[in-house]
Design a binder for these strands. Structure first.
Lengths: 260, 260
DNA sequence: CGCGATTTTGATCAATGTCAAAGGTGGTGG
DNA sequence: CCACCACCTTTGACATTGATCAAAATCGCG
């Protein structure tokens, strides 16, 4: 029951839960996509169930040994590590298709907590069955390795961002990357830009900045006409400025902004 | 030959090269240890050769698509990412038993360079054969996943260190972790402490600090009797200070210091 | 002995944190 | 529909960490 220990808020709008693995929206990128369609029977057998959680819910706490592994089907999750002095580091923002709960520490505990930023839907797999399941289906190991390698790449970029760039460039870089990931995950986007369900505190904790300084920097960026982040929605105004003034290579987010 | 493109300095003392995989000093922790002893014939067949490189050599550059994968048998390597403006982020320090060159980016290039801090010996595997080899021996995938998960853990700790801690605590944390890793990798240690083949610039680039500030901080730590880092050798003097003043949990390095 | 790389030191300055208080915002309940 | 509450954001004044610049000292090595 350890996966039930966390805080669980009721979702207000029920996100879609896949009924059939072959139709799952994240199948292409998620772990399960490594299995051929004719093996989904095995998969559905291994799977323990689906769950829908409200924003603010906790999939697992730092230090937990969760009994379940989570396949994120819909919604955003943040991974955060807390220090004894109360400081908090956001390690990653996690989007649909990710797999959570593998990669515990040597002692089996999780080094970070996983907290839902939005209403979220996941499907669950029993950790205990993982070894024998991957033994039967080694393709999963390759896919798992691929997912984890991508996560490691993000961790490296985040480290570089925090270690090498000044505050504004850090913020621009983080938001650019998130916007790009959000779109390729098919995030909601209207004429006001892309929805990024973050608070300024999340940004600060991800970047090693205080939330009040983040607020100042966001004002500067807005006044300079570079980007606007407000109410959880990001609009990129000046792609050239990203590159020239902040040394960010605009990824796949070209058609997000209005082009100054 | 792309693995030969890098800078290669001649080693001055030839580090040991394993002649027989069953006797390899890193077998227990390295990728190859995942294979049963009776399968080492397959392994030696897959292996492309050994190589000994001098300090300063480059295993691969950032942006390379190295033709080989590297199993680090002896010596230290640093992984570093460079930004267009010349800034450099040290992503990881790599010790014997590590596997390098898997985890390229989507486009097949490496996001970082791998540079030898000491004379180094590696064994090489052709990247092109990896898929079929792991297909034949899925145990390797699990081991590879384990190694990469540990690397990701280090990246997360590094990010937390840089994001949350002030300069001196960052340095103490980094050096503590390195000392601990060095000893469990069987590093050379005399009465002067553990050998860590780093310059202060490496420390700075790993921690997002300038090397001159690192120098100041190291002086402070020395004057406060916390630790001495000099000439590539670290001596930890006051374990309690690590915990109380710097919030570092002294890992397995207990018997490294003289205990104030 | 001399050279390049690294380390040290001191003076100064800019970026970012801290503290405190006020203003928004959305949700909840009457 | 309104009022309240928690949380988030904004602003301003001030403190401090860590960067920058410059020069000397030291070290390893040929």
């Amino acid at each position: 029951m350890s996966s039930g220990r966390g805080i669980v808020a009721q979702p207000r709008s029920a996100p879609r839960v896949p009924e059939d693995c072959r139709r799952c929206p994240v199948r292409a990128t998620a772990v399960c996509g490594a299995l051929d369609a004719d093996k989904t029977a095995w998969l559905e057998n291994f799977k323990r169930g689906d769950r829908v959680l409200g924003a603010g819910s906790v999939l697992f706490h730092q230090g937990d040994r969760p009994a379940d592994l989570f396949n994120l089907v819909d919604g955003w999750v943040v991974l955060e590590h807390s220090l004894p002095d109360g400081r908090r580091q956001v390690l990653d923002f996690v989007l649909p298709g990710a797999f959570l709960g593998d990669t515990p520490e040597e002692d089996g505990t999780m080094a970070y907590a996983a907290v839902c930023l939005t209403d979220v839907s996941v499907c669950l797999f029993p950790r205990s069955g993982l070894a024998s399941f991957t033994h039967a289906h080694p393709e999963l190991l390759a896919r798992l390795g691929w997912l984890n390698a991508r996560a490691a790449g993000r961790a490296h970029r985040a480290l570089t961002n925090v270690g090498c760039r000044p505050a504004r460039a850090r913020i621009v870089h983080l938001l650019s990357e998130l916007a790009s990931r959000a779109r390729s995950a098919g995030a909601h986007q209207n004429e006001d830009g892309v929805d990024l369900p973050l608070t300024q505190s999340h940004i600060g904790d991800a970047l090693g900045l205080t939330s009040v300084y983040v607020s100042q920097c966001l004002r500067d960026l807005r006044e300079q006409g570079v980007l606007v982040f407000r109410g959880g929605s990001l609009r990129i105004l000046d792609l050239r400025a990203l590159r020239s003034a902040y040394g960010i290579e605009p990824l796949a987010l070209a058609e997000g902004g209005q082009g100054g």
